[in-house]
C-alpha cells in the first residue's frame, strides 16, 4: 500500500465512525430536534470524510467534480430538511416541553 492508500483508508475510517455516531444518535437521542442533529450534521460530516477519502484516489478531474458535487448536494438537502422538519415540528408542538425555556 502506498502512502495515498493509507491516507484514503484513514479518511474513510473517520467517515465510517461519524456515520456510526449518527446512527447511534438517531437511536439514542430523546426527541425529534436532537435527532435532526444526528442526521443532518453528523451524517453529512461522515459523507464528507468518505468523499475526501475517495477524492485522494480519483484519476480524472470530472470524477473529482462529481464527488464534490455529491457532497454539496447532500449538504444542501440536509440543511433544507433540517429547517423544514424542525420548524414543522415546532408548529405542531412536538415534544416542546424539553426545549430550553419551556415551562417545566
Amino acid at each position: 500500500m502506498t502512502l495515498l492508500d493509507w491516507i484514503s483508508a484513514a479518511l474513510l475510517t473517520v467517515g465510517a465512525v461519524f456515520f456510526l455516531a449518527g446512527t447511534v444518535g438517531l437511536l439514542r437521542f430523546p426527541d425529534v430536534y436532537t435527532r435532526l442533529h444526528a442526521l443532518t450534521k453528523i451524517d453529512n460530516l461522515g459523507l464528507g470524510f468518505t468523499v475526501l477519502g475517495l477524492l485522494v484516489r480519483v484519476e480524472s478531474a470530472a470524477e473529482a467534480l462529481k464527488l464534490v458535487m455529491i457532497w454539496g448536494l447532500a449538504l444542501a438537502a440536509g440543511a433544507t430538511l433540517a429547517y423544514l422538519i424542525a420548524s414543522g415540528a415546532l408548529e405542531r408542538k412536538l415534544a416542546t416541553d424539553r426545549l430550553p425555556g419551556a415551562e417545566p
Partner: peptide
C-alpha cells in the same frame, strides 16, 4: 413555500 425550500429548488432544479 418556505424561503429555504425555494432556495433549494433554485439550486437543485437547474442541476
Amino acid at each position: 413555500p418556505e424561503p429555504v425550500l425555494l432556495a433549494l429548488a433554485r439550486v437543485t432544479v437547474p442541476l
